[in-house]
Simulated scan of single mutants.
Amino acid sequence: MELVFATHNPNKIREIQQVLPPHITLLTLEDIGCRTEIPETADSLEGNALLKASFVLENYGYPCFADDTGLEVDALDGAPGVFSARYAGTPKNEAANTEKLLKELQGKTNRQARFTTVIALCYGDETYLFRGEVEGEITEAPKGEKGFGYDPVFRPAGFDKTFAELTLEEKNQISHRARAVAELLEHLGKKQYKN
């Protein structure tokens, strides 16, 4: 079966391709000729994921899933949350986002945080939501060269390395996105969609 993943982020595409079974062909927005920056104007992760997935289904006719991910930091009352990708303003800038986060956490002893991913699947007239979370903490300084976004400053619970120090395989064992994708794949296996 063919499924579109509504993202322009090559890092996310690489992560998802690692865990998809061979009978699912992953199409990117580039593959279907969608070069539009799909608006993410909702005030929740669920809302943004639904906006992106439904946009592709309505405008291109492909079954589609999309994700939205947020980093929630306890000492910042859950910020940056739904605004994680544009925390330091627009356009998106990963380094500036991380710098702002570390600056706002200066002097704070509680560095507990979690990554949450919500995946929306739009298939025909059906819509489903899947959720994955991973607990951890924000480090004092960035560590590691792998990963993307806030990965260099997020140390998952039970690990002594940040996401950016883990291999893609290691990260895919525990990450928020991998957990949400596992729920998506379980659903797809039960429904036996064909296209």
Rank of each mutant, 00 (worst) to 15 (best):
C64F: 03
L26V: 09
R131H: 12
F5P: 01
L45C: 03
I138M: 03
K108T: 05
P21A: 05
F55R: 14
P10Y: 00
F159Y: 15
N48W: 05
N195Y: 02
E37A: 14
R177A: 01
E72V: 05
G70A: 09
E169N: 06
T98W: 00
L102G: 06
E170D: 10
A113M: 04
V118H: 09
A164S: 11
K52A: 01
E58L: 13
I13W: 02
F65A: 07
G147L: 06
G61E: 06
P22T: 08
R111I: 11
R111G: 06
D151W: 01
R177P: 08
L105C: 11
C64I: 06
N97T: 09
Q173M: 06
A49C: 05
S54M: 02
F65C: 10
E94I: 04
C64Y: 02
D160T: 15
R114N: 11
K52R: 13
E72K: 12
A180P: 12
E15S: 10
K191F: 00
V19P: 07
V181A: 04
D43K: 15
G107A: 10
P156G: 03
G78E: 05
L184S: 08
E72M: 14
L102W: 06
E145N: 15
T90Q: 15
V153P: 05
C64N: 03
E170H: 09
T167A: 02
I13G: 02
I38P: 04
K191A: 01
K12Q: 08
F159E: 14
D67M: 08
K143E: 12
V82Q: 11
Q17C: 13
Q17M: 13
K146M: 01
N172T: 11
A113P: 08
V4A: 06
E46Y: 13
T162V: 09
A79W: 11
M1A: 09
G147M: 08
G158A: 08
E94G: 04
G81T: 11
A157N: 11
F83W: 11
R14A: 15
E165G: 05
R155D: 00
F159G: 01
S175P: 09
T41R: 10
G47K: 13
S44R: 13
V56Y: 03
L3Y: 13
G132H: 07
I138Y: 01
L50N: 00
T162L: 05
P80N: 13
F55M: 13
N48I: 11
E170C: 09
P142K: 12
G78N: 09
T69Y: 01
E137S: 15
E15D: 14
L57W: 12
T36I: 12
A6H: 07
T69L: 00
G81P: 10
K108M: 10
N110A: 07
D31H: 15
L102D: 03
C34E: 09
Y87L: 04
T98E: 01
K108N: 02
G144H: 05
F115G: 00
L76Q: 11
K12M: 06
N110R: 15
L50Q: 08
A75T: 12
E72P: 05
L185W: 07
Y193M: 08
I174M: 04
V153R: 01
L27W: 02
Y123R: 12
E145S: 14
L45E: 03
T127A: 10
C64V: 08
N9C: 11
T41D: 15
A53P: 10
